[in-house]
């Protein structure tokens, strides 16, 4: 049984639906990458899973339970975590406090998770007392991911983790994502750097107009001439 299964999900912000039937399935061992043109509903899919907009049709099963329209304070304890694209750190709070906020829903001792996150993102260790707002873009992205990992999720969702980062950091972030996945966390991410991301994706989804267009492994999609022509810029 897959970790999360989306079955023809329909949803939007109250007006005309943005998602017109999106389906996907991700396992704990997967890195799923969602690509597609602007306005295809990539970020909207992640937000729909996370209860940030109204799902009006279809179903979302997480660990076999229906979670459509559940709010984050229920989803996070279930093992779901989300890194928004923008404004994804608490700028006035220290790095350490940012990470603690990620563990808000946990009532157990999370010091080992904290140590694990600092191991995953060594640059943060020296800046743990510094306000997150003073960090560079790449380091902020690390804080954001670290925060999301603090709840020990089974599925980590990332909305364009590489947006606005310099190429060096993009590689670093992608490498971290792969190693997070190796540590047993399923990944579902939206990416603009489609070629690069599909390169390490175990599952790829091409969306257009709120619907699935192509689905396959990352390698398959990269090799598909139709995908390459329409969505990967030739």
């Amino acid at each position: 049984m897959s970790l999360i299964v989306l079955d023809t999900v329909v949803g939007g912000y109250g007006g005309a639906p943005i998602l017109n039937g999106v389906s996907m399935a991700i396992d704990k061992s997967d890195i799923g990458v969602v690509v597609g043109p602007n306005g295809a509903g990539k970020s909207t899919t992640l937000k729909a899973i996370f209860g940030l907009l109204k799902v009006t049709g279809g179903s979302i099963l997480f660990k076999g339970k229906e979670i459509a329209n559940s709010l984050p304070d229920r989803l996070v304890p279930m093992g779901l975590s989300f890194v928004p694209q923008e404004k994804n750190v608490f700028t006035s709070m220290s790095v350490n406090e940012n990470l603690e906020m990620g563990a808000f829903t946990r009532r157990d001792d999370f010091s080992d998770t904290l140590a694990w996150v600092y191991d995953m993102f060594p640059p943060l260790k020296d800046k743990r007392r510094q306000p997150a707002g003073e960090l560079s873009g790449g380091q902020r992205q690390m804080v954001a991911m670290g925060r999301a990992l603090m709840s020990k999720p089974d599925l980590l969702m990332l909305d364009e983790p590489s947006a606005g980062l310099s190429p060096r950091y993009v590689i670093e972030i992608f490498e971290t994502i792969v190693s997070v996945n190796k540590a047993g966390v399923g990944i579902l991410m939206v990416e603009q750097n489609a070629r690069q991301a599909l390169g390490f994706a175990s599952k790829g989804f091409v969306l257009a107009s709120g619907q699935n267009r192509f689905t396959g492994t990352g390698a398959e999609l990269l090799a598909d001439p139709d995908v390459a022509k329409s969505f990967l810029g030739g």
């Binding site: 996370f50 940030l52 709010l71 984050p72 304070d73 989803l75 996070v76 304890p77 989300f82 928004p84 404004k87 994804n88 750190v89 608490f90 700028t91 006035s92 709070m93 406090e97 603690e100 906020m101 990620g102 808000f104 829903t105 925060r147 999301a148 709840s151």
Partner: peptide, 24 residues
């Protein structure tokens, strides 16, 4: 305190506080 920090977090960025699972 956990709740006090959550308050600061929500004052800082309410949307992210919600995403973090903080009970707003």
């Amino acid at each position: 305190s956990r709740l006090g920090k959550a308050m600061r977090a929500m004052a800082d960025n309410a949307a992210l506080a919600q995403v973090s699972g903080i009970n707003t």
